[in-house]
Simulated scan of single mutants.
Amino acid sequence: MGQVKKDGSSWYFVAELPKDPITGKRKRKKQRGFKTKREAEKALAQVEAEVIRGTYIEPTNTLYKDYLLLEWFRGKKATINSQTAKSYENYMNHRIIPKLGHIPLSQLNVMVLQNYIYSLKEDGLASATIKKIYNIIRNSLEHAKTLELLAKNPATNIQLPKIEKTEMTVWNVEESKAFLHIAREDRLYVAFHLAITTGMRQGEILGLRWKYVDLEKGVIRICQTLSHDGKEFLVGAKTASSVRSIKLPDETIVLLRKHKAVIARERLQVGQEYVDHDPVICTSKGTPILPANLRRTYARLIKQADVPAIRFHDLRHTHATLLLSQGVHAKVISERLGHSNIKTTLDIYSHVLPNMQDEAAKQINNLLSNSQ
Rank of each mutant, 00 (worst) to 15 (best):
A178E: 07
A183E: 05
A15V: 00
N61T: 12
P249S: 07
A183P: 06
H277T: 14
H339D: 02
V280A: 02
A330D: 07
T197A: 12
K343C: 09
V275C: 14
T318P: 09
E232I: 09
Q202A: 12
K6A: 06
H277Y: 15
A43H: 04
I136N: 00
Y189D: 07
E48Q: 15
R221N: 13
V328K: 04
Q3Y: 11
C282F: 01
L337P: 08
K152Y: 14
I205E: 03
Y349E: 07
K152Q: 12
T283R: 10
Y88L: 06
T198K: 00
L256P: 00
H143Y: 15
H181I: 05
I130V: 13
R32W: 11
S350Q: 12
E185M: 08
K132H: 09
Q224N: 02
R38G: 01
A237C: 03
R32Y: 15
K162W: 09
K362Q: 13
M1T: 11
S87W: 03
A361F: 02
I342T: 15
T166P: 07
Q83V: 13
D186F: 05
W171L: 06
A264N: 11
L160E: 06
G101M: 00
G236Q: 05
A15E: 00
R138I: 01
K211D: 13
T297H: 11
H319L: 02
Q304I: 10
K131P: 01
T197Q: 09
T156L: 12
N355R: 10
E175L: 06
L301I: 10
L194Q: 06
